[in-house]
Write a protein that binds this DNA or RNA. Sequence first.
DNA 1: CGTAAAATTGAGCTGTCTCAATCAATGTGG
DNA 2: CCACATTGATTGAGACAGCTCAATTTTACG
Lengths: 225, 225
Amino acid sequence: MLGTGLCGLQSDLELDRRVSINAEISQTQVEFTARHTIFRQNEIFDSIPVICDGWAATILKLSNGRRQILSFLLPGEMITCRLLFDPQLHISVDSITDGCYRTYDRSQLRSIMSGSQNIFDRFLSVYSDEDRRGDQLIATLGQRTAYERVACLLLDLWDRLEKSNKVTANRVEFPLRQTHVADATGLTPVYVSRVLNEFRDDGIIEISDRHLHIFDMEKLRRLAA
Amino acid sequence: MLGTGLCGLQSDLELDRRVSINAEISQTQVEFTARHTIFRQNEIFDSIPVICDGWAATILKLSNGRRQILSFLLPGEMITCRLLFDPQLHISVDSITDGCYRTYDRSQLRSIMSGSQNIFDRFLSVYSDEDRRGDQLIATLGQRTAYERVACLLLDLWDRLEKSNKVTANRVEFPLRQTHVADATGLTPVYVSRVLNEFRDDGIIEISDRHLHIFDMEKLRRLAA
DNA sequence: CGTAAAATTGAGCTGTCTCAATCAATGTGG
DNA sequence: CCACATTGATTGAGACAGCTCAATTTTACG
């Protein structure tokens, strides 16, 4: 983890497990419960929310009612770096599990950023990662088959969770429902079920008890193309 | 157009038709010809290229050889704002028509940006737009049918070209081949042909002579859902 | 003008969806 | 703590959107 203890001040903001700042930033903490919309498309924010506990998803709703999950938010992650610069959230955020978020004042964050090239660049690097993941998702949805999409999603989450040491013995907490996987991959819940079951029957993974177990990582990575 | 004449200095950088700076920035101009890769995935840049004439496309290549067009670059547009902060280009750029690009020194641009909150915010707003379009594309590829995808693409391009006054009498230059449309929508060239022909037969649009003519805008917007 | 690239068209196939029914898990109120 | 209600997962059968392959025509380019 980069930057722990920077500035040597009080409260702790950790971004995507890559930037953390100790500084005197005013923050408020808010609890949320599973399966609710916690931020709505087009809300205006003077502060930056960061999920500090639980899982959530960013969602874009189309005019016709269909919904696409853009990303899953894991504990410690900002909704999107864009909020640092653009007060209007153009996406919704739904909670997946119970949890809480903290909000940090934008102007304070920005003055901290402009005070340190170092911190500034770290935020930008988080932003950059966010973009890369977005571009990868575009390519995945445009070019990959259902099996590949599901494999990619599982691996993406796995790799992120592994970075924050949430993986033990090839097993990790996995609170997503199949509808979440469906909304993220552009597939039908019914078909997601078939894909996951086939992965299970092939001895590649198993999802049970809100946990994901990967038995054959190599095969899964090969499947993700 | 915002910001023309800012700083009252020499050369002209216009971004996405939304930010333009007159300042003493060193730049070099490079010509390119149609149908070539002009920047390669993973190149490192000390300068920011801006397409100043002609069309190009940003492309992500997958391990298995498939390719996804992430965006079309119209005259005046930066490859991606990310390059302002991250020297590594993680995508390729292919030219579509003949044209040219200029490159601007990153550190110079950044010092201009840090010298003016105003200019800084404008760059960020361009960046923000880039992201929004990315998110829309994710939703389109994940949730929309072939007809909707093609309609969305045509409208997106149309709206951007209209903003820069390139549309006259419901007609606009349109140098894309059907393979470009296919790579951008995640469809097959063959199927794109069928979709476009159906649009034509329904009296909605016509593409001929490298121009796009929209006869029934309302119907097209309805099709785009 | 000749050659290569792009577009069109037809026929047939397959990956993914829809609909519908059943079963399992999770949450809730009495 | 159990019964019921709700939500999520599984499975089967059938349909269809979009793909593949291949042949032909049209357009663009050197």
